[in-house]
């Protein structure tokens, strides 16, 4: 992420393609300036924890453990309690004004929109040998 130029193309792509929104908030990756614009940018996105604290915190099963790390999301089960966002150690979950959580599902659609190749897809071999893709910061 040291290469990031702060264009927000990744967040806009995620909102547009995954969540059908025009937004830089309702996205699996969000860009903040680190210590003011003058020192660069940092991304807030999912580290693909395994076990995932957000999943453990979710009381309904709306978030469940994804093989290889991270979460599988079932929106219909969500009661907008916000526990997942509280549990995430890196602030990767955005709660919109209605309380709906947004998190990275590691689909990789944002990767091609980063002009500085800050983002990449990595293959992760999960313990049960299912192959999973995850999106990572370089």
């Amino acid at each position: 992420m040291e290469r990031c130029i702060g264009c927000h193309s990744c967040s806009l792509a995620c909102a547009r393609l995954v969540h059908r929104k025009l937004s830089w908030d309702t996205a699996g990756i969000r860009i903040a300036s680190s210590g003011g614009l003058s020192t660069g940018f940092e991304a807030k996105n999912c580290l693909a924890c395994n076990p995932a604290p957000c999943v453990l915190a979710c009381p309904t099963g709306a978030y469940s453990q994804r093989k290889g790390g991270g979460v599988i999301v079932r929106k219909s089960l969500c009661i907008l309690c916000g526990e997942c966002a509280k549990a995430c150690p890196v602030d990767a979950i955005y709660l919109d004004p209605s309380g709906e959580p947004f998190v990275c599902i590691h689909c990789g659609r944002c990767v091609n929109f980063c002009p500085h190749n800050c983002l990449e897809m990595k293959e992760i071999v999960a313990s049960d040998n299912n192959e999973n893709l995850t999106e990572n910061q370089k």
Binding site: I5, G6, C7, S9, F113, C114, P115, H116
Partner: peptide
């Protein structure tokens, strides 16, 4: 030192 961009611009001319 580095380039930066206006929000919404992948060109990054700054």
């Amino acid at each position: 030192l580095r380039n930066a961009a206006c929000a919404g611009c992948p060109v990054g001319c700054i």
